[in-house]
């Protein structure tokens, strides 16, 4: 099997959001597709204390050469898939750099610190401006909104996977991800494929 050259080795992807949104599911699907293509993949996840409502991240490290550690060093992320805008900025603060590309679902989720009155959620427009300013390239993908149109916010995950593949930032194409989606959602494959294709469409617009 010939393994496609990477634009950078290791290629470092962060998937971030709020506990319960499904970042582990996304990292598993992407990770399995990459391993099938012959890459060495290491994924570090937030576990345990990441109960519903906590900030979560998956570090996905892709290489042709070696098994990297499950932590991306500070300032060394290449791609961030943000399922929530504040969490995206939280990751950029630590792992961002001038070459980073971001794919973001702009739908906010408020924490109990915000609802309890101890913290303020920032102005969404300003927040998105800051993320754009800190990224070499940004794709804004209204995944939750589109998923709700499809019947359930849960489809946001497949939309975001589609956006990640459609953006071309990973050495993966539709064909390598489809079989993994089939395995993951055997019962709801039709709806998830529709969501996946929607995600591709949204970044190609």
């Amino acid at each position: 099997m010939t393994i496609k050259q990477l634009v950078k080795d290791p290629l470092n992807l962060i998937i971030t959001g709020v506990g319960g949104q499904g970042n582990v599911m996304i990292s598993l699907i992407i990770g399995n597709a990459l391993v099938k293509e012959g890459y060495l993949v290491t994924i570090g996840e937030t576990y345990g204390a990441s109960q519903r409502g906590g900030p979560v991240m998956s570090h996905v490290r892709i290489s042709r050469e070696t098994q990297y550690s499950p932590f991306i060093p500070d300032g060394h992320a290449d791609i961030i898939l943000g399922m929530e805008p504040v969490e995206t900025l939280r990751m950029m603060r630590q792992f961002g750099n001038p070459a980073i590309v971001t794919i973001i679902n702009p739908r906010p989720i408020y924490s109990i610190d915000v609802t309890g009155g101890q913290a303020e959620y920032p102005d969404l427009d300003k927040l998105m401006e800051a993320i754009k300013e800190l990224s070499a390239k940004t794709w804004i993908v209204n995944a939750t909104e589109e998923a709700q149109k499809m019947g359930s916010p849960i489809f946001a995950n497949s939309i975001l996977i589609g956006a990640l593949i459609g953006s071309g930032v990973l050495p993966l194409d539709e064909k390598s991800v489809e079989p993994i989606l089939q395995e993951t959602f055997p019962k709801e494959i039709e709806a998830n494929m529709k969501a996946f294709n929607k995600g591709i469409e949204l970044v190609k617009q």
Partner: peptide, 22 residues
């Protein structure tokens, strides 16, 4: 670890824009 100016900017933007999630 990264471009110093970028680091300053990222820190500046994040200062009041990243609320805690307890």
């Amino acid at each position: 670890p990264r471009d110093v100016e970028y680091g300053k900017k990222a820190e500046e933007f994040s200062k009041s824009s990243v609320p805690e999630r307890s």
